[in-house]
């Protein structure tokens, strides 16, 4: 948090209660005793590590195909082997390696889409919350319009017009998923704006830019992080759905959604081909959601749910 003049420091209950502790220490203590947060952090941390270290830990080139070694089952299967721990896909590519590299794509899409939509939504929300009145009315109207557009359908149509690719998916999702950012930051900004320290900053003659950057943004950061995790999860699921429908990430990129789409025709007789990427997606999204819920609980004032 930005240090601020003592006169502007608020005195909410959470800071006042245990006098010896800083807010960060409280958050840490709460975080360590919050089961969901810990599980979420562990899952996300593990997947982020796997994505970063993909070239080191992936046993094979995820694109190297060998059509004479197709559809080898995973190692726990009677016909599986240790050469391919999770087996191979329909073109003989190593499934574990594709899964590891696929985590890069899911994370990349989740982060970039959340970043783009975060910037758009936060800007709109903060402006609406800070200025209120007409600005607020315009923003509300823009948000309502955006909510009225069916997301999947519009994303599909856009992707088909420009041609599906990683970049297009990120942009389309980024430009479609900002509504929750706007709604939440608007509410949070309104709340913060009413506080004494903002009034004091104004009285001290600080311009709106400085007030927004120094007083408002740091104080709505927690709310932003929570929404960002939600939207990351949302973007990852939508990417998977778009790729599943054939208009998202294009082959041969190993996106998890695409792996499910490609494995679909084998699901009756080689069910692991869709189960493995499906479970991976589920675990990642679950982890992100738990992390987000955890952050919300930890940063919430004591006693609130």
């Amino acid at each position: 948090m930005t240090p601020r003049p003592a006169t502007l420091t608020p005195a909410p209950a959470e800071v006042a209660l245990p006098p010896a502790r800083s807010p960060a220490a409280i958050a840490l203590r709460r975080g360590l005793s919050h089961g969901g947060f810990l599980i979420g952090a562990a899952i996300v941390g593990f997947i982020v590590l796997a994505a970063l270290a993909a070239p080191l830990i992936a046993p094979h080139d995820p694109y190297a195909q060998d059509v004479s070694r197709r559809l080898i089952p995973p190692v726990w299967h009677a016909k599986g082997g240790v050469a391919h721990l999770l087996g191979t896909d329909k073109l003989g590519r190593d499934y574990l390696s594709r899964l590891i590299y696929g985590s890069q794509i899911s994370l990349l899409i989740g982060l970039s889409a959340a970043l783009i939509s975060g910037i758009i939504g936060t800007t709109l929300g903060v402006l609406a919350g800070y200025y209120g009145g007409r600005v607020d009315a315009v923003v509300s109207y823009v948000v309502t319009t955006r909510l009225a557009m069916p997301v999947v359908l519009v994303a599909l149509a856009m992707a088909s017009l420009v041609g599906g690719s990683l970049k297009v998916v990120v942009l389309v999702l980024g430009f479609l998923l900002w509504d929750r950012f706007a709604v939440v930051t608007r509410a949070a900004t309104r709340q913060v704006r009413a506080q004494d320290f903002v009034a004091a900053a104004r009285a001290a003659g600080f311009g709106p830019v400085r007030i927004l950057a120094q007083e408002i943004l740091p104080n709505i950061l927690n709310a932003l992080i929570v929404v960002a995790t939600l939207e990351m999860a949302h973007a990852i699921l939508l990417e998977a759905a778009l790729s599943f429908l054939g208009l998202g990430v294009q082959p041969p990129l190993p996106s998890w959604g695409l792996m499910i789409a490609e494995g679909k025709q084998y699901m009756f007789f080689q069910p692991w081909v869709i189960t493995i990427p499906g479970v991976a997606l589920l675990v990642l999204v679950l982890g992100i959601n738990l992390l987000g819920d955890g952050v919300r609980d930890i940063t919430a004032p004591e006693g609130r749910h």
Binding site: L237, I260, K264, L282
Partner: peptide, 15 residues
């Protein structure tokens, strides 16, 4: 409810 939010709907359908 947490599972419901995390599950890709098409994958759930296929399952």
């Amino acid at each position: 409810s947490v599972l419901g939010q995390a599950m890709p709907s098409f994958w759930f359908g296929l399952t």
